[in-house]
Design a protein around this nucleic acid. Structure first.
Length: 204
DNA sequence: ACTCGGATGGTCT
DNA sequence: GACCATCCGAGTA
Protein backbone atom coordinates (compact mmCIF):
# COMPACT_ATOMS: atom_id res chain seq x y z
CA UNK A 1 0.00 0.00 0.00
CA UNK A 2 1.42 3.40 -0.94
CA UNK A 3 1.87 5.86 1.92
CA UNK A 4 0.71 9.45 2.01
CA UNK A 5 2.23 12.23 -0.07
CA UNK A 6 4.43 14.37 2.18
CA UNK A 7 5.88 17.76 1.34
CA UNK A 8 9.53 17.82 2.37
CA UNK A 9 10.01 20.15 5.33
CA UNK A 10 12.68 21.99 7.30
CA UNK A 11 13.46 18.76 9.10
CA UNK A 12 14.52 17.16 5.84
CA UNK A 13 16.37 20.14 4.40
CA UNK A 14 18.23 21.06 7.56
CA UNK A 15 18.81 17.51 8.75
CA UNK A 16 20.86 16.29 5.76
CA UNK A 17 24.14 17.31 4.19
CA UNK A 18 24.23 17.90 0.42
CA UNK A 19 25.50 14.42 -0.51
CA UNK A 20 22.86 12.65 1.56
CA UNK A 21 20.14 14.98 0.32
CA UNK A 22 21.25 14.50 -3.30
CA UNK A 23 20.66 10.76 -2.97
CA UNK A 24 17.42 11.12 -1.04
CA UNK A 25 15.97 13.59 -3.53
CA UNK A 26 16.11 11.03 -6.35
CA UNK A 27 12.58 9.74 -6.88
CA UNK A 28 10.99 12.74 -5.15
CA UNK A 29 8.75 15.15 -7.08
CA UNK A 30 9.67 18.75 -7.83
CA UNK A 31 6.40 20.65 -8.06
CA UNK A 32 5.60 24.21 -9.10
CA UNK A 33 2.48 26.32 -9.14
CA UNK A 34 3.37 29.36 -11.23
CA UNK A 35 0.62 31.90 -11.92
CA UNK A 36 -1.90 29.26 -10.90
CA UNK A 37 -0.49 26.66 -13.31
CA UNK A 38 0.63 23.39 -11.75
CA UNK A 39 3.46 21.28 -13.15
CA UNK A 40 5.67 18.57 -11.66
CA UNK A 41 8.50 16.18 -12.44
CA UNK A 42 10.20 13.26 -10.75
CA UNK A 43 13.80 14.07 -9.83
CA UNK A 44 16.14 11.65 -11.62
CA UNK A 45 19.51 13.43 -11.48
CA UNK A 46 21.22 15.64 -8.87
CA UNK A 47 24.62 17.02 -7.87
CA UNK A 48 25.97 17.84 -4.42
CA UNK A 49 27.94 21.00 -3.65
CA UNK A 50 29.73 20.73 -0.34
CA UNK A 51 31.23 24.11 0.55
CA UNK A 52 33.22 25.44 2.25
CA UNK A 53 35.80 22.74 1.37
CA UNK A 54 34.42 21.98 -2.11
CA UNK A 55 36.17 24.08 -4.76
CA UNK A 56 33.36 23.35 -7.20
CA UNK A 57 30.90 25.38 -5.15
CA UNK A 58 30.14 29.05 -5.67
CA UNK A 59 30.52 29.35 -1.89
CA UNK A 60 33.93 27.68 -1.82
CA UNK A 61 36.08 28.81 1.09
CA UNK A 62 33.02 30.24 2.80
CA UNK A 63 33.11 33.18 0.39
CA UNK A 64 30.26 35.60 1.03
CA UNK A 65 29.15 37.85 -1.82
CA UNK A 66 25.71 39.16 -2.81
CA UNK A 67 25.35 36.06 -4.95
CA UNK A 68 26.41 33.50 -2.32
CA UNK A 69 24.69 34.92 0.75
CA UNK A 70 21.77 32.58 0.11
CA UNK A 71 24.05 29.61 0.86
CA UNK A 72 24.39 30.71 4.47
CA UNK A 73 20.69 30.72 5.21
CA UNK A 74 18.86 27.75 6.73
CA UNK A 75 18.25 24.76 4.47
CA UNK A 76 14.96 24.64 2.61
CA UNK A 77 15.20 27.57 0.23
CA UNK A 78 15.86 27.87 -3.49
CA UNK A 79 19.11 29.05 -5.04
CA UNK A 80 18.47 29.98 -8.67
CA UNK A 81 21.17 31.58 -10.79
CA UNK A 82 21.91 32.47 -14.40
CA UNK A 83 24.59 30.58 -16.31
CA UNK A 84 26.01 31.31 -19.78
CA UNK A 85 23.77 34.31 -20.03
CA UNK A 86 20.64 32.30 -20.75
CA UNK A 87 20.02 29.32 -18.51
CA UNK A 88 18.61 29.40 -15.01
CA UNK A 89 19.70 26.57 -12.72
CA UNK A 90 17.70 25.46 -9.70
CA UNK A 91 19.40 24.36 -6.48
CA UNK A 92 18.09 23.50 -3.04
CA UNK A 93 20.00 24.94 -0.10
CA UNK A 94 20.43 22.26 2.55
CA UNK A 95 21.89 21.79 6.04
CA UNK A 96 21.83 24.25 8.92
CA UNK A 97 22.50 27.99 8.71
CA UNK A 98 26.12 28.97 8.01
CA UNK A 99 26.96 25.58 6.45
CA UNK A 100 26.91 26.55 2.74
CA UNK A 101 25.67 23.42 0.98
CA UNK A 102 23.37 22.93 -2.00
CA UNK A 103 21.89 20.30 -4.31
CA UNK A 104 21.63 21.08 -8.02
CA UNK A 105 18.64 19.46 -9.72
CA UNK A 106 19.99 18.28 -13.10
CA UNK A 107 17.06 16.39 -14.60
CA UNK A 108 13.46 15.46 -13.95
CA UNK A 109 11.03 13.08 -15.61
CA UNK A 110 7.83 14.90 -16.63
CA UNK A 111 4.89 14.01 -14.39
CA UNK A 112 1.96 16.44 -14.36
CA UNK A 113 1.28 19.39 -16.64
CA UNK A 114 2.83 17.92 -19.76
CA UNK A 115 1.03 20.26 -22.15
CA UNK A 116 2.19 23.36 -20.29
CA UNK A 117 5.76 22.07 -20.15
CA UNK A 118 5.78 21.36 -23.88
CA UNK A 119 4.50 24.87 -24.51
CA UNK A 120 7.14 26.47 -22.29
CA UNK A 121 9.87 24.52 -24.12
CA UNK A 122 8.38 25.09 -27.58
CA UNK A 123 8.26 21.37 -28.26
CA UNK A 124 5.59 19.20 -29.87
CA UNK A 125 6.72 15.90 -28.41
CA UNK A 126 8.08 14.88 -25.00
CA UNK A 127 11.71 14.36 -26.08
CA UNK A 128 14.53 14.05 -23.57
CA UNK A 129 15.34 17.70 -24.03
CA UNK A 130 11.99 18.62 -22.52
CA UNK A 131 13.34 18.25 -18.97
CA UNK A 132 16.67 16.35 -19.33
CA UNK A 133 19.13 19.03 -18.29
CA UNK A 134 19.45 21.61 -15.51
CA UNK A 135 18.76 24.57 -17.79
CA UNK A 136 15.83 22.79 -19.43
CA UNK A 137 13.82 21.56 -16.48
CA UNK A 138 13.63 25.07 -15.02
CA UNK A 139 12.12 26.35 -18.24
CA UNK A 140 9.63 23.47 -18.35
CA UNK A 141 8.61 23.99 -14.73
CA UNK A 142 8.50 27.79 -14.98
CA UNK A 143 11.32 28.38 -12.50
CA UNK A 144 13.43 31.53 -12.90
CA UNK A 145 15.86 33.94 -11.24
CA UNK A 146 12.95 35.60 -9.49
CA UNK A 147 12.55 32.47 -7.38
CA UNK A 148 16.01 32.82 -5.82
CA UNK A 149 15.75 32.61 -2.01
CA UNK A 150 12.17 31.32 -2.22
CA UNK A 151 11.07 29.25 0.79
CA UNK A 152 10.34 25.71 -0.38
CA UNK A 153 7.78 25.16 2.37
CA UNK A 154 5.42 27.52 0.52
CA UNK A 155 3.02 26.73 -2.31
CA UNK A 156 4.96 28.06 -5.31
CA UNK A 157 7.86 25.61 -5.49
CA UNK A 158 8.10 22.55 -3.28
CA UNK A 159 9.24 18.92 -3.25
CA UNK A 160 7.02 15.94 -2.43
CA UNK A 161 7.80 12.48 -1.18
CA UNK A 162 5.23 10.24 -2.85
CA UNK A 163 6.56 7.24 -1.00
CA UNK A 164 7.84 5.49 -4.12
CA UNK A 165 10.35 2.77 -3.45
CA UNK A 166 13.84 3.46 -4.81
CA UNK A 167 16.38 0.67 -4.69
CA UNK A 168 19.74 2.03 -3.50
CA UNK A 169 21.51 -0.04 -6.16
CA UNK A 170 19.55 1.83 -8.83
CA UNK A 171 21.61 4.96 -8.14
CA UNK A 172 24.67 5.71 -10.29
CA UNK A 173 27.32 8.00 -8.78
CA UNK A 174 29.86 9.71 -11.03
CA UNK A 175 31.93 12.88 -11.36
CA UNK A 176 30.13 16.18 -11.58
CA UNK A 177 29.68 17.92 -14.92
CA UNK A 178 31.51 20.91 -16.30
CA UNK A 179 33.82 21.83 -13.43
CA UNK A 180 37.31 23.07 -14.31
CA UNK A 181 38.82 22.59 -10.87
CA UNK A 182 41.73 20.69 -9.34
CA UNK A 183 41.62 17.19 -7.94
CA UNK A 184 40.23 15.70 -5.87
CA UNK A 185 37.02 17.70 -6.20
CA UNK A 186 37.06 17.40 -9.99
CA UNK A 187 36.56 13.64 -9.72
CA UNK A 188 34.63 13.08 -6.52
CA UNK A 189 31.44 11.20 -7.47
CA UNK A 190 28.85 13.70 -6.33
CA UNK A 191 26.62 13.45 -9.37
CA UNK A 192 23.76 11.02 -8.78
CA UNK A 193 21.22 9.63 -11.20
CA UNK A 194 18.65 6.90 -11.43
CA UNK A 195 20.03 4.04 -13.50
CA UNK A 196 18.61 3.52 -17.00
CA UNK A 197 16.35 6.56 -16.81
CA UNK A 198 15.90 8.16 -20.21
CA UNK A 199 15.40 11.65 -18.79
CA UNK A 200 18.86 12.01 -17.25
CA UNK A 201 20.91 14.78 -18.86
CA UNK A 202 23.07 13.94 -21.91
CA UNK A 203 26.46 15.17 -20.57
CA UNK A 204 29.02 12.55 -19.58
C1' DA B 1 27.40 8.28 -33.53
C1' DC B 2 30.41 12.26 -32.63
C1' DT B 3 32.61 17.07 -32.36
C1' DC B 4 32.57 21.90 -32.66
C1' DG B 5 31.28 26.74 -32.09
C1' DG B 6 27.96 30.44 -31.09
C1' DA B 7 24.60 32.52 -28.13
C1' DT B 8 24.44 35.63 -24.02
C1' DG B 9 24.95 38.24 -19.36
C1' DG B 10 26.00 38.18 -14.26
C1' DT B 11 29.89 37.82 -11.22
C1' DC B 12 34.33 38.60 -9.68
C1' DT B 13 39.34 40.02 -10.42
C1' DG C 1 37.87 41.07 -19.47
C1' DA C 2 37.84 36.22 -18.27
C1' DC C 3 35.17 32.83 -16.61
C1' DC C 4 31.29 30.00 -16.36
C1' DA C 5 27.26 23.78 -12.28
C1' DT C 6 24.55 24.93 -20.60
C1' DC C 7 22.10 23.98 -24.85
C1' DC C 8 21.39 23.57 -29.72
C1' DG C 9 22.24 23.37 -34.51
C1' DA C 10 25.54 22.40 -38.11
C1' DG C 11 28.93 19.62 -39.83
C1' DT C 12 31.15 15.18 -40.49
C1' DA C 13 30.52 9.83 -40.53
Amino acid sequence: MPGPVIKLDKQFYQGNDAVTASRLLLGKYLCTCIDGVYTSGKIVETEAYMAPEDRGSHAWGGKRTPRTEVFFMEGGIAYVYLIYGMYQLFNVIVNVADVPQAVLIRAVEPAEGLEVMLQRRSLEQPLRRLTGGPGLLTTALGIGIGHNKLDLSGDTIWIEDRNEQLDGTAIIASARVGLNIDEPYRSIPWRFRIKDNKWTSPAK
